[in-house]
Design a protein around this nucleic acid. Structure first.
Lengths: 156, 156
DNA sequence: TTCAAACAGGACCAAATCGGTCCTGAATCG
DNA sequence: CGATTCAGGACCGATTTGGTCCTGTTTGAA
């Protein structure tokens, strides 16, 4: 029941790109250094993000990564699922295979509810929201609401 | 991002006890057989549940396990956390250690939201609810998500 | 045209977790 | 006593996590 480091690093990395400004090309090396994420690992993570179309990559001198969309159009769900694959609380929720438990398994409904809630939270929060929500590091954690007013977002 | 088999088996096992009636003492062997859960594994899981005070155990002839509370007083969160430990989406949410990321980590708030949602879903659903929600393979359940009507289940 | 910078991608790896099994031991009942 | 039933720990194989490393391939500039 955890978001993996890879997922976490992915969001952090994209957030770094977002802060550097839209369209800005940034090298893995910088992101790695400033966000304190192992470079090789981050490189691998960004590969997934590139394949998912969340970033564009450029090779060679002056190369690096840039966001492929506006920060407000990239949800944390996009990022996490690009890296970890679809969020699925249980096997029965990811495959068409039937639940093997006695008579209509009562748990599937429950797991599905939980899963939906999580996906909702992540799909409502974009990189833009996270940028706004940065807390001043010393203040006694005001409100942990990363905002919600993202209107019409086509979740997934 | 999954509920482990152990957690799932735990809920299923307690649900079995609940169905057998309050106070009923049932042997691991029966639960294992009828719920199709490996016996040794289930025994281990029930140890956790006993330690958490969710079931009472009796040894010797005529022994077995019985619910320690009313089904309506045992939430699925109780069960899952008794087995898997506290639900924590991220390290920063389980320990007092600080998030190591640049300036107040914006992710903690997000993960906390997701985590809260999940815990809410599980803490709102008791064994009694799950008993009620058993879908008779055709009747449209009201409150809980109806799930696809489980058709012919194959033997294990 | 060549070279170095930068990403692409796969092989590999150690450690942790998952999903169990198995064995010994202790309690309990008849 | 002895059968039964749980308690608890050791152990185990497979998978996942969290990386590293090495060999490309692309690109821009000297």
């Amino acid at each position: 029941m955890q978001v993996t480091r890879a997922g976490e690093y992915g969001v952090l990395g994209l957030l770094h790109l977002a802060r550097r400004g839209a369209g800005q090309v940034v090298m893995i090396d910088e992101v790695s250094r400033e966000e304190r994420i192992p470079k090789s690992f981050l490189a691998k993570i960004f590969q997934s993000l590139a394949r998912a179309g969340l970033v564009r990559s450029n090779r060679g001198i002056g190369g690096g990564f840039a966001l492929a969309k506006e920060p407000a159009e990239i949800t944390t769900l996009d990022v996490i699922e690009a890296i970890e694959g679809p969020i699925a609380f249980q096997r029965c929720l990811e495959a068409p295979t039937e639940c093997p438990h006695t008579g209509g398994c009562p748990l599937c409904g429950l797991f599905e509810q939980a899963q939906t809630q999580v996906r909702d939270v992540f799909s409502r929060t974009t990189l833009a929201d996270l940028m706004k929500s940065r807390v001043p590091a010393a203040a006694p954690a005001t409100s942990l609401k990363p905002r919600a007013p993202t209107p019409a977002r086509a979740a997934v």
